[in-house]
Write a protein that binds this DNA or RNA. Structure first.
Lengths: 317, 317
DNA sequence: TTTGCTCATGGGCAATTACTCGTTAAACGG
DNA sequence: CCGTTTAACGAGTAATTGCCCATGAGCAAA
């Protein structure tokens, strides 16, 4: 073994040790014995092989791509939590996979023994996720709704998810006995001054984790479809640069809340602090791309659950 | 997380855990926390991902192919030690690489602090390996030659390697003061009865490790070239099914020693037990393929150092 | 030749991981 | 519906691995 101090020889040894360790599955002790070096040296060679990128690991499973996309998204937007689910090739439903994944994440939070406050927004996607929740007993937690549960016509809004959720998991729940949009900023002030509403507002601010849907704008967006906004108002919003909405809060394509008459009238609880809690958006699909992208850019949310295709769009791939 | 008992979901989890562990480099504790499972379960998932071949490791280094060939050879012939060196594309010399690798392996044994007995055969390949040995101080070991050092013309044989080796490593050495071939079986008995020879024979039987060259037969094989056998005798041997020789012991293509007049006259020490010691053959090249293959099949050697091309031949690739 | 620097080495120790065992829960078959 | 079988789980423990540090060899500049 004439000269082993040269770099090439050392890399050869590193490759050999790395191969024995990762491919052949030997222990570092065995490698050390086989190469007549100390175990510590074997360990150094293995870690050198890793550091020099000689060994490459890949995951042969559909989920692998998702995890990579998730990691890329997490880095790009500095997120606390990202989940990317495989895209349904048929791609018809907007809740395939994401609902299960969202439910799984909600369930992870619910499993915690220490009491937490979970805030939820509204929307079809979130509803689908909550519908996937298994029956549980979580009396230690509290669920608070960020949005009002009174529809534009006075009836209960369909996609207010808090009741389904509370039903499934047996937790104390705090709905917002309000409409989604008030008629004016003054009315909102009055309504928010009510004792019941005020405590809900305070609870919302304490949320440990928040799950929200992300709504796109335009005549087919949920705000219009569910009758909260007329088409004219919607067109005006879009002209003013609105890109999406979360719990009724409308933001532009940089994720900045618009300073306009709509946001002055939104009765929802302010979205909990992204500094102290996780705010996780559930959304996928080409139609919602702009809304998701803007929400991420503006740090309105610091977590996202989406699908492969949308994740790739968000990464500009 | 509706159903997690199904195999698909479990594999997904395994993939996720495997990805987090191997790609993201998280610890199993972190994975367990992230997936809301116990650390033991995380470990099970990671090991499941490995068992199910979900994670694949690849080594980007020329030596990887050699290591794979070595592992395959080791399994095919149940060998104790295999080393495969990259083939020299020019392929002219029969000692390129193999000499260095052989020297490295000899050196590994020499580095051992506990006293061992090293037996050596003869041949050009082995000589080249020994010439690569760095100066060492190994007074604790003993080297014994398996073959005589007297050539057919009464001079010292060229490729008896024990003197070069002893010179380089300063160890006690035990040459065989004999020819390679005796004139008859009776002469061999007489010679082996000498006190000096007898102790060498006994020492050879105790060898902890043996390094031998592998000779091909035919008019260009070492036995003929070095003048130990005439062409007529060689032709007779080949007709009788001889496929190769190690230390003068001639065997057929199944690695069985031939029961003929040549083996009765070979003065060499019997090849040490493959049950209790390592017998490592050094050889490469198309010409020696048959000899190597037969030696491996017949378990005459239980270790081999060769090159990529020869290894592929041996594996029938 | 001496001095100072760098780097590989091996010992020791703490962290991490793998395995075994007894228990529990779920699936299966009668 | 009940007993059997299988698989998964958690706890505990042994094995393995990662990392820090003191040491000494190799080497270049003084």
């Amino acid at each position: 073994m004439a000269k082993r101090s040269d770099t090439q020889g050392r890399l050869d040894d590193a490759a050999r040790a790395g191969w024995l360790y990762y491919v052949a599955g030997r222990t570092q002790d065995e490698i050390a014995a086989a190469m007549s070096i100390s175990r510590q040296s074997a360990q150094r060679l293995v870690s050198l092989a890793v550091a020099e990128r000689l060994i490459k690991v890949r995951l042969d499973h559909p989920i692998a791509a998702c995890l990579e996309l998730a990691e890329a998204l997490r880095k790009k937007y500095d997120l606390k939590h990202v989940e990317v689910v495989p895209s349904d090739p048929a791609g018809s439903s907007s809740t395939v996979g994401i609902a299960e994944a969202g439910a799984a994440e909600i369930e992870r939070w619910l499993k915690r023994p220490d009491p937490i406050v979970i805030a939820v927004g509204t929307g079809r996607t979130l509803k689908a996720a909550v519908d996937q929740l298994p029956p549980m007993e979580c009396p230690q937690h509290r669920i608070v709704s960020l949005t009002g549960n009174i529809g534009p016509d006075g009836s209960a809004a369909f996609y207010n998810v808090i009741f389904s959720m509370a039903d499934a998991i047996k937790a104390r729940h705090f709905p917002m006995p309000l409409p989604v949009l008030c008629s004016s900023a003054e009315e909102r002030e009055t309504l928010h001054d009510q004792a019941l509403v005020r405590s809900t507002l305070e609870l919302g601010a304490q949320a440990d984790v928040t799950f929200v849907g992300i709504g796109e704008l335009g005549p087919d967006g949920p705000l219009c479809v569910d009758g909260f906004l007329g088409k004219e108002e919607m067109q005006k919003l879009v002209r003013e640069g609105a890109a999406g909405e979360i719990c009724g809060w409308v933001y532009d394509n940089q994720g900045k809340l618009l300073a306009n008459s709509i946001n002055d009238r939104v009765a929802s609880v302010p979205i909990p602090s992204r500094e102290t809690s996780s705010v996780i958006g559930l959304a996928l699909g080409r139609k919602k791309f702009q809304a998701i992208s803007a929400a991420l850019k503006g740090n309105i949310i610091n977590g996202v659950i989406t699908d492969e295709a949308t994740a790739e769009q968000l990464l500009g791939r």
